[in-house]
Every structure is written in structure tokens, then in C-alpha cells.
Computed example of a mutant assay.
Amino acid sequence: MSAPLLVDRAEGVVTVTMNRPDSLNSLDVALKVALRETFEELAADPACRAVVLAGAGRAFCVGQDLREHMATMGDKAPLDTVEKHYNPMALALAELPKPVVAAVRGPAAGAGAGLAFLCDLRIGGPSTSYLMAFARVGLAADTAVSWTLPRFVGAAKAAELLLLAEPVKAEEAHRLGLLTRLADDDEQVLPMAQELAARLAAGPTVAYGQIKRELLHGATGTLADALLIELAAQQLSGGTADHRESTDAFVNKRKPAFEGR
């Protein structure tokens, strides 16, 4: 039996691939647990300086494994997976203090779209599409979609996408900001994502983590809250070797060599 998740490393970039291609990488319990555990491990791994999240086969991820879900329909709490699995997985991804690039090849539906939206950057191709599929199966949104989607497209468009549950194809997704870059060919999606991650892996990792923290809280708090978070972030990043190195490089007109610390 294949592992539900594949992890490959190359010079600071860790590629995490959801590996259930026969079910379009639908999320069963094993895959949800593996994703959460892997995100937590990478957060604490100094050798990891950027992450690529991808899906095996012809889909990124189509959300909940409905076959597994049907088996729990008779339970008193059939959706306790939201509390047990989806919420911890979403937090682990959102709070991962390294840049995360999603290689969104093929469809990303429901919680699969939620995973992509929690990444920092998203690369797509001609086959890429998003579908807020929750209402199609009589459910509300999860995997932080109610939080991420309005931040990308605004409240009115988020309501349209969630209530009507109509697919968003690649060019429209790019226009809306749901894709950072759009490749001309599906075969370019993963290499483009890995190339971008490699660029980030060569940068100031601690500062990137603090920028992510600022963005995570900045849009939802008060100005005073944002200023306090920025203060703490600058104090932390200002004490890093990378800050000292980049300042010296600027003064001496050379290219900085970041070490991620």
C-alpha cells in the first residue's frame, strides 16, 4: 500500500506530495493526519527553508474522501473530523514559519482549495480549477475557506463562489488572485513552484516567517495590534545573522548570502 504522503528534499526545499491519485488525492483520515504531522515537523526543521505542496496525478486535491465520510454517517458526530483533523491541519499549514508554494495542477475542490489558499503562493496551469464544493454536498465551508477566500476576493465574491458552487477556471482564478502565477503548460506547474521555492529557500527564512505572522494577524486586528506584532517581528528578525549579513552586503555592494538564521 502506497504512503498517503510523499516528502522529497532538495537544497532547502521540501516537496510534500499528496499521494492518493486514484481518488484525486481526496482527504481521508490517514492523509489529513500525515499532512498535519509533516507541517509540524517542517516547522521545527532548520534544514527546511521553503515548502512545495503538490498532488500526485491529475488533481491537486478534491477535498474530503466522501466514501470514507459515508461510512461515518451513522455516527453521532460524523463531522468530528473538522475538529480532530481539518482545523489542526489548517493551523499547522497557516502557521508554518517557512514560505509555502502550492503547485495546483488540476482541480482543487472543497478542502483541497482550502489547503491551496492557506499556502503563501499558488502556481497553476491550464487544467487548474477551483470549486467551493461544500454546498453541493449540503455542508458549510471548512479548512479556513471562510477566512481565506474573502481576503482574496472580497466578501461579495466569496459569497457567490460558496453559495453557487460554480467552478473557477485557471485564467479567472489568476485574475482573482487565487493563483499567483499561471504556467502555459501543466507540466510546468510543479517545476515552476519548485523554482520559486528554491528562490525563497535562499532568502532570509526568519524574516519570511515573521512576515507571514504579520500578514496572518494584520488584516483582522486593530492598527495598534498590527504595530505591536510588527515591533516583535522586527526585534526578532533584526537580531538574526541574515539581517547582519544583508546589511553588510548592502553597504559593501555585494550580494548577500543568507543562511536562514
Results as ranks from 00 to 15, higher is better:
Ala3Glu: 15
Val7Thr: 13
Val7Ala: 03
Asp8Cys: 04
Ala10Phe: 12
Val13Gly: 02
Pro21Asp: 01
Ser23Pro: 05
Leu24Ala: 07
Asp28Trp: 07
Leu31Lys: 05
Thr38Gln: 08
Thr38Arg: 11
Ala43Gly: 15
Asp45Phe: 00
Pro46Val: 08
Ala50Lys: 04
Leu53Lys: 11
Ala56Trp: 05
Ala56Gly: 00
Arg58Cys: 07
Gln64Lys: 05
Gly74Lys: 09
Pro78Gln: 01
Leu79Glu: 12
Leu79Gln: 03
Pro88Asn: 06
Met89Cys: 10
Met89Tyr: 00
Ala92Asn: 12
Leu93Tyr: 11
Lys98Met: 01
Val101Arg: 02
Gly106Pro: 15
Gly110Ser: 15
Ala111Tyr: 00
Ala111Lys: 02
Ala113Ser: 12
Gly114Ile: 07
Leu115Pro: 03
Leu121Ser: 07
Gly124Tyr: 02
Tyr130Val: 03
Arg136Glu: 07
Arg136Tyr: 09
Asp142Lys: 01
Asp142Phe: 12
Thr143Asn: 11
Ser146Leu: 06
Ser146Ile: 01
Trp147His: 14
Trp147Gly: 00
Val153Met: 08
Gly154Lys: 14
Ala156Gln: 04
Lys157Asn: 02
Ala159Ser: 11
Leu161Tyr: 02
Leu161Phe: 09
Leu163Ile: 03
Leu164Val: 05
Glu166Asp: 08
Ala170Phe: 00
Ala170Thr: 05
Glu171Leu: 05
Glu172Leu: 09
His174Cys: 03
Leu176Arg: 04
Arg181Phe: 04
Glu187Phe: 00
Val189Tyr: 05
Leu190Asn: 03
Met192Val: 13
Gln194Gly: 04
Ala197Gln: 03
Ala197Tyr: 01
Ala201Lys: 05
Lys212Ser: 03
His217Pro: 06
Ala219Tyr: 14
Thr220Ile: 10
Gly221Met: 06
Ala233Leu: 09
Gln234Trp: 09
His243Gly: 00
Ser246Lys: 10
Val251Asp: 13
Lys255Phe: 15
Lys255Asp: 04
